[in-house]
Amino acid sequence: MAEAVANKMQGPQGPKPKRIISGRNIVLYGFLIVAALYWLLPLYVMVVTSLKGLPEVRMGNIFSPPMEITFEPWVKAWDSACTGLYCEGLKVGFWNSIKILIPSTVISIIIASVNGYALSFWRFKGSEIFFTILLFGAFIPYQVMLYPLVIILRELGLFSSLGGVVLVHTIFGMPILTLLFRNYFAGVPDELFKAARVDGAGFWRIFFQIMLPMSLPIFVVAIILQVTGIWNDFLFGIIYAGTTNFPMTVQLNNIVNSTQGVKEYNVNMAATLLTGALPLIVYFVSGKLFVRGIAAGAVKG
């Protein structure tokens, strides 16, 4: 006993010291830095190239920073680059993309959230089968549906129109979005729903006044998924939108792959950055919300 007291001030006590430079940390941070460089390098090349004039680009030093910064390529990409027959730049495609994006996102999320809510709380006969079929839809390859959809849209008189491409985006977003919302609402305690029923609230009142306010995180996730997915879409845009409604991605392709004249790498880079700007901004602004929303199943009132 006395010995133990004597030993008290010696030996380990308090928190165990941690070494900052350990073999483990060097490997870990080394890997992270290399990975970050690997992904950032192309972006860097694109940014510096887009800020160089054409003569400087021809010198071939793709990694060197611009000697003379010029925004000419950006202006040209936006305003006057040739996309096929017209030379009006990407701005036309940008507005087309916006016109496709907003209705597609809004409509698909409204429908999917109501679907998910109904499938979680208002089980009807065959609701499980309905859900299974919907999920199955998520696994059918797009290619199989392309041509049938062309025919359907033609019959509906929506082929080669804004409405047509919006409809296609809404349909293809439905399985994954419904799954997202259903799983979120499945995590909401059943008793909350029952309490609202006892209070006399019906289908829509429970949805709008109780479920909606507590499911903002999952709406953010859905918006991010839809905005990036629809903005990045090329296939549906080129097939269903019609030439006058080509989204930005299609016009970008037309600029970059045009076969006439000299290759204006700086303009191409600027155009690519412009096209990718929106998803990038969305990620930067909402990254935190996104992660929170994904983890939100665990959030209880």
Binding site: P189, E191, L192, K194, I210, P213, M214
Partner: peptide, 9 residues
Amino acid sequence: FQSYALYPQ
């Protein structure tokens, strides 16, 4: 209810 089931918002 057991879980109180208060409207969280």
